[in-house]
Design a binder for these strands. Structure first.
Length: 429
RNA sequence: UCCUCGGUAGCUCAGCUGGAAGAGCACCUGACUGUUAAUCAGGUGGUCGCAGGUUCGAGUCCUGCCCGGGGAGCCA
């Protein structure tokens, strides 16, 4: 009998197939029993009736525990009463392994318990849906860049010093020398951009901030494109194209998962590019109009960012931040003195998912900036070389995968958008 | 680091002014041919986070510590 995956089950209507998976849940009504079977690609209800199922299999079902690994054979048919629309009439069933005591029951659980059992929690339907969407997002952003001629050239994780100096770094003992886990691959992407023109890096980055909020992890994934001979506008167009493409890909390919999450997709569906753009001064004015106070020169705090993001129903971009709120490498607008920078924020209160802009390519300006921020000039010599030899205008950005996935899925906390979240006080499992 | 809420059965929680530790789920036994977190009847299950203190008596009050949630700062 043919072994098939549940995601392909519609192709086998009326046929006998074999499923290899796990028992997600079961309900028994005496001589008819309902099994919720999952095989990693989807869920399907199996029905075992005394008259249709062989005796051995029918008896076995009584003893099966949640998450028993099972091989089930039977015929596929459409069934309105089944949760996914398809159903398997069980002819026979065998258990590969069966053990009682699976900790995650279908009833409610607390976050602490679930995170401590993350290795099992990922089997649950909502977590399964979120992580399937994450995989789709990861694939779509990479394909988008690939189609535009970008090369993936990854940055190192061990780095000799701070990329941006300000935030806290994880120190690692590297054969007796202190090195740091990367908090951004951008500086290295700038180097490869001048060698390969259009590049991106994709990988985990680390921040040793003691943040305990729904939008922070200590280990998170960023995709960071960088383009030679490019300006602010080019980076913004690329960012909105990438995000818009990711949304449409998920809407097209992960409908079932969005339904599992009860995601209202109205706003996702109405997302069109280009996204609205406002300059920093305008954003500050709006924040004050919306009832949160901030002054010109302040960065957006969480409450400010939230009210602003709530006032849009599409992703939007804030541009031209003042110099003090952005990193040392941001290029200044020669007329206004503001930076040629942008952030892309998600609506519905999700906030910043992309940050980027044009990089300073004048060595004198860059040295001044490193000095004024009291960063170690010695550590940046290689970076300054990029301005000494063949320097050109270039621009790029970093996109936080988890924040984008959180918004697309409509889930509150980004810890559920990565298979194994690392956060303050939590590195197990 | 700061603010705030919490820690009672495997899980989710209730436990009033200090007076014999409870419920639902899970698990076990039984019933049920269309269940949707199935339902119904019965049963098993406790270091009340840890250490002190007050009291005739502490899950409950006090002190310290540990752990976790939410938020702030910072950021993707």
């Amino acid at each position: 009998m043919k072994w098939v995956y549940i995601e392909d089950i519609h192709k086998y209507e009326g046929q006998e197939v074999e499923l290899r998976g796990w028992l997600h849940n079961k309900r028994s009504s005496g001589r008819i029993k309902f099994l919720m079977i999952r095989d990693g690609t989807g869920f399907i209800q199996g029905v075992a009736a005394e008259k249709d199922t062989d005796d051995e299999g029918f008896a076995l079902i009584n003893d099966l525990n949640q998450e028993a690994s099972i091989v089930v054979r039977g015929s596929v048919h459409r069934e309105q009463r089944a949760p996914t629309g398809y159903e398997l009439s069980v002819r026979s069933i065998e258990a590969i392994q069966n053990k009682e005591g699976y900790p995650i029951s279908p009833k409610s659980h607390g976050v602490d318990f679930l995170l401590g059992n993350r290795h099992l929690w990922v089997r649950s339907s909502k977590q399964w849906a979120v992580l399937r969407i994450r995989a789709e997002v990861v694939r779509s952003v990479q394909e988008y860049l690939w189609e535009k001629g970008f090369l993936q050239l990854d940055a190192p994780i061990f780095t000799p010093a701070a990329c941006e100096g300000t935030t806290t770094l994880f120190e690692v003992n590297y054969f007796g020398e202190p090195v740091y886990l990367s908090q951004s691959g951008q500086l290295y992407s700038e180097a490869t951009a001048l060698a390969f023109s259009r590049v991106y890096c994709f990988g985990p980055t680390f921040r040793a901030e003691k943040s305990k909020t729904r939008r922070h992890l200590t280990e998170f994934w960023q995709i960071e494109p960088e383009m030679a001979y490019a300006h602010l506008e080019d980076a913004m167009e690329l960012a909105e194209g990438m995000v818009g493409n990711a949304i449409h890909r998920v809407l097209e390919k992960r409908k079932e998962e969005l339904r599992t999450l009860d995601r209202d997709t109205t706003l996702l569906e109405s997302t069109i590019t280009p996204f609205p753009r406002i300059r920093y001064e305008e954003a500050v004015r709006r924040v004050n109009e919306l009832g949160e106070s901030m002054e010109y020169g302040d960065d957006f705090g969480a409450p400010q960012e939230t009210v602003l993001a709530m006032s849009f129903d599409t992703p939007f971009m804030i541009t031209h931040f003042p110099i003090d709120v952005k990193a040392f490498y941001m290029r200044k607008d020669s007329e206004t003195g503001d930076t040629l920078s942008f952030d892309l924020l998600a609506p519905e209160g999700y906030g910043e998912i992309v940050g980027g802009g044009e990089r300073e390519f004048d060595i004198k300006e860059l040295e001044k900036s490193i000095e004024s921020r009291e960063l170690p000039m010695e550590a940046f010599q290689w970076y300054l070389d990029l301005r000494r030899f063949g320097s050109v205008p270039h621009a790029g950005f970093g996109l936080g995968i988890e924040r984008l996935v959180a918004w697309i899925c409509g889930i509150k906390h980004i810890r559920e958008t990565i298979p194994f979240p690392r956060m303050l006080g939590r590195v197990y499992p």
